[in-house]
Design a protein around this nucleic acid. Sequence first.
DNA 1: ATTTAAATGCAATTATGTTGCTTTAGTTGT
DNA 2: ACAACTAAAGCAACATAATTGCATTTAAAT
Lengths: 143, 143
Amino acid sequence: MKINPVDVLKEHSLKHTKQRVRVLEEIALDTVAISQPELEKKLGKEIDRVTLYRILNIYEDKGILHRIMDMNGTANYAICSTACTADHHHDEHVHFNCTNCSRIYCLDVKVPKMTMPEGFKAATINTTAYGICEKCSLQVKEN
Amino acid sequence: MKINPVDVLKEHSLKHTKQRVRVLEEIALDTVAISQPELEKKLGKEIDRVTLYRILNIYEDKGILHRIMDMNGTANYAICSTACTADHHHDEHVHFNCTNCSRIYCLDVKVPKMTMPEGFKAATINTTAYGICEKCSLQVKEN
DNA sequence: ATTTAAATGCAATTATGTTGCTTTAGTTGT
DNA sequence: ACAACTAAAGCAACATAATTGCATTTAAAT
Ligand SMILES: [Mn+2]
Ligand SMILES: [Mn+2]
Ligand SMILES: [Zn+2]
Ligand SMILES: [Zn+2]
């Protein structure tokens, strides 16, 4: 997802600050999601922890980032598709969480439709597959 | 899921302690999953926090409980089906997390099969639907 | 340039989870 | 029933994650 942080801020009428630009830049570096702890490690010298939390929350609210929880309950962030808005995240793709390297991928796989029991009304469905990712599969073969 | 805590402990060759029995009793009270914070609130006077964590971890390892992470990264626990073992959790059903009352249900809906991209090998797939549960739907109608 | 409002940074607090070590209590064998 | 052994519980300390209130800074608007 190739984005221009400054434009993104404008589009969502968010004040342009160097902290906000840095966070977006950092997350946009990779298509793989990045965790809050990783972000804090990378940006902790430039940006206060609290500010980072606030920026991530705002980005999620605005539909700029989407948050994927891993099995340890750690928040991971990835750039949303441009179709996402504050009201509705178009995040109905499957995520893949590698149990080896713990990378989280946004797959180009739609979450399958499924029928809810009587009385249950699903608004969004979240699917995460756990297993070995392509990079880790390759590494195993090499050895 | 009607279970006898004492039997469960025997079956998994776990020492029978009053703390372990209490935790299982508490979780078995409801088919709906219960969160770690709720458990701590209910049992905190009888059982030390650390002990509770250790019991929950052991139960998960042994395949007695399964852990469902909600969207806030909070651990929720429910009794596993009897088919679950330490090696393999038969947890391939869909979970439903009510966005109103935040209850987590284990639905009798299988996680649909889906194809992973080249190179990705999924071992388990986790699906959680978010929306309004049956109880909350009813309450809305009443008003 | 001045004003205004919003965002940042900092300190303090709460929640969550883990580790090492001591004490307690089940279990096993006599 | 008792002793011996071992696993589990409890406690203190620590680590990390997340939130809140408030003072200060900075971007945007006039
Ligand atoms: Mn995604
Ligand atoms: Mn379940
Ligand atoms: Zn991997
Ligand atoms: Zn509900």
